[in-house]
């Protein structure tokens, strides 16, 4: 048993270890987080003589702005990438899971988009999705699939979906690896046991594998929906928020930093940030609870 002096010194040591991190994260993460809530209640501009507390006015302005609701709608719509990511990543994981020759090379290929920067990826896809000169339309026309090019990024019926495709494509490799890890952890005996019971491979998969990897499914869904709600770079690079592709974060950016779209307003941008935070928190809490309930109930 340690003396109380020993315990005190251990406490001191602990805080000495923690100090640098606590200071850096406190100053550059916690403080601005608190600051965001504060600024959202102010009419604020640096060095301006008119700075004043306005209560919830920024929120009411945001909520009365049709542009905000449009952005919110698009952000919620963007969550449709989540099921796509979960299903495709799981499919991909099943495809690359067995240890057969060249498998590492294939996995690596599928993982390449994950390590590359979105700015470049988005630009590469812009070259592909261009209406008149894009690779995709040229191929579609040559193969006779389409008579003329589809305006992938410049019509309201397709633009948002096109950008979502790129988001899914970019992330698949990452979630694929998560699923590979999960699948490896499923004991072979279990699936063999179910086969002996006369179940087909599909039944075995649904009744044995899926429940076993469900925590990973949940985790994947949560991580990918958090990042879906924060999508920005794809929009910035591919459509500039035009043709019905403004999302919440893009709207925050233009409100806070883009003077070419009108005067900037830090208070309103922060209010939108708070609403985004609430949305993410609310959505993930509900999603986690719902998804955890699926197998723990029975």
């Amino acid at each position: 048993m340690k003396s109380s002096a020993g315990r005190d010194s251990q406490t001191l040591t602990a805080w000495a270890f923690l100090a640098p991190t606590v200071i850096v994260m406190g100053l550059f993460q916690f403080l601005p987080i608190l600051g965001a809530f504060a600024v959202s209640l102010w009419d604020y501009f640096p060095d301006s003589p008119n700075n004043r507390f306005v209560g919830l006015r920024n929120f009411s302005r945001v909520l009365h702005d049709p542009a905000f609701w449009e952005a919110l709608k698009n952000s919620v719509l963007y969550l449709l990438v989540v099921p796509a990511i979960v299903l495709l990543a799981l499919g991909l994981a099943l495809l690359v899971e067995p240890a057969i020759p060249f498998m590492n090379a294939f996995r690596a290929c599928y993982y390449v988009p994950v390590v590359t920067m979105m700015v470049v990826v988005a630009y590469a896809w812009t070259l592909i999705f261009n209406t008149d000169n894009g690779l995709l339309n040229q191929l579609l026309v040559r193969w006779g699939v389409a008579e003329r090019g589809v305006p992938w990024l410049t019509s309201e019926s397709t633009a948002l979906w096109t950008v979502m495709t790129v988001t899914v494509w970019k992330g698949l490799g990452y979630y694929m690896v998560m699923f590979i890890v999960a699948l490896k952890a499923v004991p072979k005996e279990l699936s063999e046991a179910s086969r002996i019971d006369g179940a087909g491979p599909l039944q075995g998969f649904l009744n044995v594998t899926i429940p076993m990897i469900w925590p990973t499914v949940t985790l994947t869904a949560v991580i990918s929906s958090i990042s879906a709600l924060q999508v920005f770079e794809e929009i910035y690079m591919m459509t500039n928020g035009r043709v019905g592709t403004t999302t919440l974060v893009y709207d925050i950016y233009t409100t806070g930093f883009d003077m070419s779209r009108g005067a900037i307003d830090f208070g309103q941008a922060c209010a939108m940030g708070v609403l985004l935070f609430a949305l993410i928190l609310g959505f993930t809490t509900v999603a986690v609870r719902r998804m955890q309930g699926v197998y723990s109930a029975n």
Binding site: P32, P46, Q230
Partner: peptide, 19 residues
């Protein structure tokens, strides 16, 4: 410390910028 993982960067980027 872990709770910062839940907070989207876009929430606090403006105060961070001003700071």
């Amino acid at each position: 410390l872990l709770s910062t993982m839940m907070v989207p960067f876009q929430l606090y980027m403006i105060p961070l910028f001003l700071m």
